[in-house]
Structure formats: C-alpha cells, structure tokens
C-alpha cells in the first residue's frame, strides 16, 4: 500500500464523518436515533469525531419501548453524561396510554412494531428534519436499497421505488415542510467493520454484548432472557447459560446465543466464524419474508 492510501476502516470512517457533517450543514434540526445498540453507539462516536473539539451539535433520541435491558438504560445515561449531549426520550408506553397504539397480546407479544408510531410522533413533536441512524445495508435486503439520505414524506413513509439518485458524494437534503430525512452514515459498514472499529477505537459498549451467565429460556431457536415482560409457558424451563447478544433490541425479542466470547477479540473471532446472520435471532424479522421492508415503508428505523 502506498503512503497515501487509507485502510478500509479509515475510508469508511472518513465517509461517515463527511455525511454527518453534511447533515449538520444541510438541515436545521437534526438528531441521532440512539437505541443503545452498538451501531448507534458507533454513529454517536463518529459524530463526536466529526465536530471535535466542539461538542456534538445534535440531541440523541431514544425510542423507549419500556421493555429494555436495564444495562442498556444505564449505559445510555452514562454516555449522554460523558458526551454532554441532550437526550430526548419518545415513550411507547405513553403512546399506548394515550391510545395512539394498541399493544399486542399473546405469547410472542412485542412492542417492536409500535415503535414506528412513537418514533414518528417524536420526530413531529420536536420538528426534527433529519434523523441519523445506525442502520447498515448489509443487515437486510430492504436495507440494501437504502440511500445515505433517505427521504420520508409527511407521513414518514419510505418509497423504495421513488428514491432520489445519489451520485458521487453530492447529497440532496432538500425537502418540503413536514417532510424529513433519515440519514445512515454507516450504510457501507458490515457487522465485522463495526466490531473491528469498536476494537480499534476502544469504544465502550453495553456488557450484554459480552458472554456472561444469564437466566434464559429456549424459544424459536435462540435463548431469550427471562424478564418481567415475557410470558412463560408451562413448558418453558428457565436456566443459567453462558450467553451473549449479537444485536440489542427490545428485551422481548432479542435472542442470545451460547458463547464464551467475553472480550472484543473473542467476539470478532466469533463473528468471523459465524454462519448465521446477525438479525437471525431477531423475532421481528422472522415474521414474514418482507417484514423489514413493510416496516420501513411505514416509517420504521
């Protein structure tokens, strides 16, 4: 390699920082959608690098399903404090209480789909015109067609057939009143890139990503954590297992896998040899072949 070339992580970082700065420059009131998962942690880290030595000029928005891992909440609050950023919470519980959405019931009930309403309400209430998220194109086939600057109409909907062409590094953030953009600075990163970057940059992540003995039940091919939000069947046998989580979503739908990866290096080894996709343990994606696409069209993350 010549002296004037970047490694792929450096190139991806430079691209993401460029995009985050474009968001700041092109929009009036942008925000970062922050789930407490590793991808949004990386986006927050990149935002910090983009504006250093100034503080990040965006609030972090958390759409709180109320069904969280307690560790994620603690992590979120610490990070906000450390970055000196603003936190805005959109509460799914509040959407339920106000009657805006109706909660699912039954064995595999989840608040995942309800988040869309709360998210769109939070965007509207706060007048956000651009929301940055940690979605990556390698995650899922509907995401593979997503733009960096993804236009949403005034109902927050995504129209995959009518996306703006995105050429070179010229991003068009123009919009009408009431419309907004979702922006995905780490679109081009893969799961492996994210892990390598976390290791390289020494970024703190919630300990749920590391293997630890946890109280879990076996359901639909993965280890679901036992929590107050999950309905146990008579046949469910809670047990203690060495488990880690590859993605962090709502506690009711995020399945863990047996693992002894308790360091970043071991996680990277595990990801490298994994034969299952990252979202393979996400119940929200298993509902139908196009479940992500359908949710995205409606305005999901």
């Amino acid at each position: 390699m010549s002296d004037y070339s970047l490694t792929h992580l450096e190139e991806l970082e430079a691209e993401a920082i460029y995009i985050i700065r474009e968001v700041f420059a092109q929009f009036d009131n942008p925000a970062i959608l922050f789930s407490g998962g590793k991808d949004s942690i990386v986006v927050a880290h990149l935002a910090r690098k983009a504006f250093w030595p100034a503080k990040i000029p965006f609030p972090l928005v958390h759409i709180d399903t109320g069904h969280n891992f307690p560790e994620t909440m603690e992590f979120r609050d610490n990070l906000i404090k450390e970055m000196g950023a603003n936190l805005i919470v959109g509460s799914v519980q509040q959407s339920i209480d106000e009657g805006a959405v109706i909660e699912e019931t039954g064995m595999n009930a989840s608040r995942n789909a309800l988040q869309t309403t709360t998210l769109l309400d939070t965007i509207e209430f706060n007048n956000f015109d651009a929301c940055m998220g940690g979605a990556r194109r390698d995650e899922e086939k509907a995401r593979a067609k997503e733009r960096f600057f993804s236009h949403r109409d005034d109902f927050g909907q995504w129209d995959p057939k009518n996306q703006r062409p995105e050429l070179w590094n010229l991003f068009n953030g123009k919009k009408r009143m009431g419309e907004h953009f979702r922006v995905f600075p780490i679109s081009n990163w893969t799961e492996m890139d994210v892990w390598q970057y976390i290791l390289q940059e020494n970024i703190a992540i919630p300990e749920l990503y590391f293997a630890k003995e946890r109280n879990v039940i076996w359901r639909n091919g993965s280890w679901l954590p036992v929590s107050e939000f999950i309905t146990l069947k008579d046949t469910d046998e809670p047990q203690i297992k060495m488990v880690r989580f590859r993605t962090l979503g709502d506690i009711t739908i995020t399945g863990g896998q047996e693992s002894d990866a308790n360091t970043l290096e071991k996680i990277i080894q595990e990801v490298a040899s994994s034969r299952q996709t990252e979202r393979g343990n996400r119940e929200d994606d298993k509902r139908s072949e196009s479940s992500m696409e359908d949710r995205k069209r409606q305005g999901y993350f």
Partner: peptide
C-alpha cells in the same frame, strides 16, 4: 471461513 481470524490483517485491508 477459517477459525483463526487475522485481526491485524483485516485492519490493513483496502476497500474496492
């Protein structure tokens, strides 16, 4: 994929 993943090698890769 091989079991012993080369972390350093990965960090030095170019992007095409």
């Amino acid at each position: 994929m091989e079991n012993n993943f080369d972390t350093q090698g990965y960090l030095d890769m170019e992007l095409l």
